[in-house]
């Protein structure tokens, strides 16, 4: 195990230290006093565990390919940018543009998330990315989504508060978004429609939402007490008839 006191450390030095040790075979990292250092876990393609005590900076786990990262605080923007594989668990809230063009791995955020979360998420063969946010989301949740699974739970939602912002699933042409509770129709992108869950969806929820609940000590059945629905694109070719040829 490698424990690093990151107080005042330049991000390049911190990340170099982690990568060099990981490449040399170290698999357990504990980073204390992290305070805004960017790019932690970026480009890490090993199955290592990184525990972050403090708030990591932007682009946590960008281009990551395998690390398991636990953040015991809030996190910032662009977590899992173009992530290929791995798991990020944030015991708090997180910022904008999470999981941009993410192709694999899972991002679990305990509380709220910002704007444009899951934008351009895609899946390929056995790689199916997953983002679950326990709180509420800003505008453009799942924008341009081309594949993968997103869930928005609103566990902290107070009466009258919306689950998500506007333009939910705008431009979506693949994948599925599960919502706990309802969203006003005017908030939905015009490329999506609401459907009831089927047996396949139940399995998906059990697998990933079950894992999410385990991460944060939640009771799965209790979370499921409120009704879930799903958003899927009405067309896989939303932009098929734009051109004269």
């Amino acid at each position: 195990m490698m424990q690093i006191d990151a107080r005042g450390m330049y991000y390049r030095d911190l990340n170099k230290m982690i990568k060099e040790a990981a490449w040399a075979g170290e698999t357990e990292f504990i980073l204390d006093n992290v305070n805004g250092q960017r790019y932690i876990g970026t480009g890490v393609d090993r199955k290592v565990n990184i525990t972050i005590n403090g708030v990591p900076g932007n682009d946590l786990a960008a281009f990551a390919n395998g690390p398991v990262i636990t953040v015991n605080a809030n996190a910032q923007d662009a977590i899992g940018n173009t992530m290929n594989d791995g798991l990020v668990v944030v015991h708090g809230l997180a910022g904008d543009v999470l999981g941009y063009a993410m192709r694999g791995g899972r991002i679990y955020i305990k509380d709220d998330v910002g704007y444009r979360v899951g934008i351009h998420m895609k899946e390929y063969r056995r790689q199916v990315p997953v983002i679950i946010a326990g709180g509420r989301a800003g505008d453009f949740f799942g924008e341009y989504m081309a594949g993968g699974i997103m869930m928005l739970l609103g566990l902290n939602r107070k009466p009258g508060q919306p689950l998500a912002g506007d333009y939910l699933g705008t431009g979506m042409h693949g994948g599925v978004i599960y919502l706990r509770g309802e969203v006003a129709a005017y908030r939905l992108g015009k490329e999506v429609a609401v459907f009831a869950l089927d047996d396949g969806d139940e399995k998906t929820l059990q697998k990933y939402l079950g894992e999410f609940c385990d991460c944060f000590g939640l009771d799965y059945n209790q979370v499921r007490e409120e009704k879930f629905c799903k958003l899927v694109p009405v067309s896989h070719r939303p932009y098929g008839r734009l051109y004269a040829g």
Binding site: D77, K122, A146, G171, H173, R237, Y239
Partner: peptide
């Protein structure tokens, strides 16, 4: 790394 036969959309801006 996208499914066969799907449209590959590159948004005008990088949204990050």
């Amino acid at each position: 790394m996208i499914p066969l036969g799907t449209d590959a959309l590159s948004p005008a801006p990088h949204h990050d």
